[in-house]
Protein backbone atom coordinates (compact mmCIF):
# COMPACT_ATOMS: atom_id res chain seq x y z
CA UNK A 1 0.00 0.00 0.00
CA UNK A 2 2.91 2.34 -0.51
CA UNK A 3 2.21 5.67 -2.10
CA UNK A 4 3.18 5.90 -5.71
CA UNK A 5 6.87 6.54 -5.49
CA UNK A 6 9.02 8.36 -7.88
CA UNK A 7 11.56 5.59 -8.10
CA UNK A 8 13.44 4.38 -5.07
CA UNK A 9 14.26 6.37 -1.98
CA UNK A 10 17.06 8.84 -2.42
CA UNK A 11 19.58 10.32 -0.02
CA UNK A 12 17.35 13.22 0.76
CA UNK A 13 13.99 11.48 0.92
CA UNK A 14 13.21 8.07 2.33
CA UNK A 15 9.79 6.48 1.91
CA UNK A 16 8.31 3.68 4.01
CA UNK A 17 4.78 2.32 3.80
CA UNK A 18 4.64 1.51 7.47
CA UNK A 19 6.49 2.47 10.64
CA UNK A 20 9.34 0.23 11.71
CA UNK A 21 10.98 0.68 15.05
CA UNK A 22 9.26 1.44 18.29
CA UNK A 23 9.59 5.21 18.15
CA UNK A 24 7.87 5.42 14.77
CA UNK A 25 5.07 3.10 15.89
CA UNK A 26 4.51 5.15 19.04
CA UNK A 27 4.37 8.28 16.92
CA UNK A 28 1.39 6.82 15.10
CA UNK A 29 -0.68 5.30 17.89
CA UNK A 30 0.26 6.79 21.24
CA UNK A 31 -2.12 9.55 22.32
CA UNK A 32 -3.35 9.80 18.75
CA UNK A 33 -6.89 8.77 18.05
CA UNK A 34 -10.46 9.23 19.07
CA UNK A 35 -10.86 10.58 22.57
CA UNK A 36 -13.26 8.61 24.71
CA UNK A 37 -14.73 10.27 27.78
CA UNK A 38 -13.46 9.23 31.18
CA UNK A 39 -17.05 8.33 31.95
CA UNK A 40 -16.96 5.30 29.74
CA UNK A 41 -13.28 4.58 29.64
CA UNK A 42 -12.13 2.23 32.34
CA UNK A 43 -8.45 2.63 31.99
CA UNK A 44 -5.81 3.58 29.60
CA UNK A 45 -3.29 0.88 29.95
CA UNK A 46 -0.09 2.29 31.29
CA UNK A 47 2.91 0.97 29.54
CA UNK A 48 6.53 0.76 30.54
CA UNK A 49 7.57 1.75 27.08
CA UNK A 50 7.17 5.34 28.16
CA UNK A 51 10.45 4.95 29.95
CA UNK A 52 11.97 5.05 26.49
CA UNK A 53 14.08 8.11 26.28
CA UNK A 54 11.72 10.65 24.79
CA UNK A 55 14.04 13.59 24.70
CA UNK A 56 12.62 16.91 25.59
CA UNK A 57 14.98 19.57 24.47
CA UNK A 58 15.51 22.06 27.23
CA UNK A 59 17.95 24.85 26.65
CA UNK A 60 20.62 24.31 29.21
CA UNK A 61 24.33 24.39 29.64
CA UNK A 62 24.46 20.66 28.93
CA UNK A 63 22.76 21.25 25.62
CA UNK A 64 25.16 24.05 24.75
CA UNK A 65 28.18 21.94 25.65
CA UNK A 66 26.90 19.14 23.45
CA UNK A 67 26.53 21.50 20.52
CA UNK A 68 29.99 22.93 21.13
CA UNK A 69 31.44 19.44 21.29
CA UNK A 70 29.80 18.53 18.00
CA UNK A 71 31.07 21.69 16.33
CA UNK A 72 34.58 21.18 17.65
CA UNK A 73 34.66 17.62 16.36
CA UNK A 74 33.77 18.63 12.83
CA UNK A 75 36.13 17.71 10.10
CA UNK A 76 36.29 20.90 8.11
CA UNK A 77 38.87 19.72 5.63
CA UNK A 78 36.49 20.45 2.81
CA UNK A 79 35.92 24.05 3.72
CA UNK A 80 37.95 27.21 3.89
CA UNK A 81 37.88 27.23 7.67
CA UNK A 82 40.08 24.16 7.65
CA UNK A 83 42.79 26.20 6.02
CA UNK A 84 42.74 28.67 8.92
CA UNK A 85 42.84 25.78 11.41
CA UNK A 86 45.86 24.29 9.78
CA UNK A 87 47.72 27.54 9.85
CA UNK A 88 46.96 28.23 13.47
CA UNK A 89 46.95 25.08 15.49
CA UNK A 90 47.04 22.02 13.32
CA UNK A 91 43.33 21.45 12.99
CA UNK A 92 40.46 20.00 15.00
CA UNK A 93 40.41 16.91 17.15
CA UNK A 94 38.81 14.99 14.34
CA UNK A 95 41.49 15.62 11.76
CA UNK A 96 44.19 13.11 11.17
CA UNK A 97 46.38 14.74 8.60
CA UNK A 98 50.12 14.30 8.90
CA UNK A 99 50.12 14.50 12.64
CA UNK A 100 52.30 12.40 14.88
CA UNK A 101 50.64 10.51 17.68
CA UNK A 102 52.37 12.62 20.34
CA UNK A 103 51.27 15.89 18.78
CA UNK A 104 47.74 14.63 18.52
CA UNK A 105 47.76 13.54 22.14
CA UNK A 106 48.90 16.98 23.30
CA UNK A 107 46.02 18.69 21.55
CA UNK A 108 43.45 16.19 22.70
CA UNK A 109 40.78 17.97 24.65
CA UNK A 110 40.08 16.09 27.87
CA UNK A 111 36.51 15.33 28.83
CA UNK A 112 35.18 15.22 25.30
CA UNK A 113 33.38 11.96 24.84
CA UNK A 114 32.97 10.26 21.53
CA UNK A 115 29.27 10.04 22.13
CA UNK A 116 27.52 10.85 18.89
CA UNK A 117 24.10 10.08 20.24
CA UNK A 118 21.45 12.09 18.55
CA UNK A 119 18.20 13.16 20.07
CA UNK A 120 15.05 12.08 18.33
Amino acid sequence: MAIATRGTSSNYLQRAPSPSGLADVLDVILDKGLVIDAFVRVSVIGIEVLTIDARIVIASVDTYLRFAEAVNRLDLSQTETAGIDELRNGGSKGERKAKGALEGAKEKIPGMSSDKERSR
Binding site: I3, N11, L13, Q14, A16, P17, V28, G33
Partner: peptide, 21 residues
Protein backbone atom coordinates in the same frame (compact mmCIF):
# COMPACT_ATOMS: atom_id res chain seq x y z
CA UNK B 1 15.75 17.98 -2.73
CA UNK B 2 15.98 21.73 -2.27
CA UNK B 3 17.04 21.35 1.36
CA UNK B 4 19.64 18.63 0.91
CA UNK B 5 22.24 17.76 2.09
CA UNK B 6 21.59 19.60 5.32
CA UNK B 7 18.11 18.10 5.66
CA UNK B 8 17.15 14.48 5.18
CA UNK B 9 13.41 13.76 4.94
CA UNK B 10 11.39 10.65 5.67
CA UNK B 11 7.77 9.96 4.89
CA UNK B 12 5.81 7.06 6.33
CA UNK B 13 2.46 6.04 4.95
CA UNK B 14 -0.25 5.80 3.87
CA UNK B 15 -1.34 5.36 7.47
CA UNK B 16 -4.70 5.16 9.19
CA UNK B 17 -5.56 8.72 10.27
CA UNK B 18 -4.73 8.45 13.95
CA UNK B 19 -3.61 12.06 14.28
CA UNK B 20 -6.89 13.36 12.90
CA UNK B 21 -9.54 11.15 14.50
Amino acid sequence: RSLQPVVRAEVIGPLPPTAFA
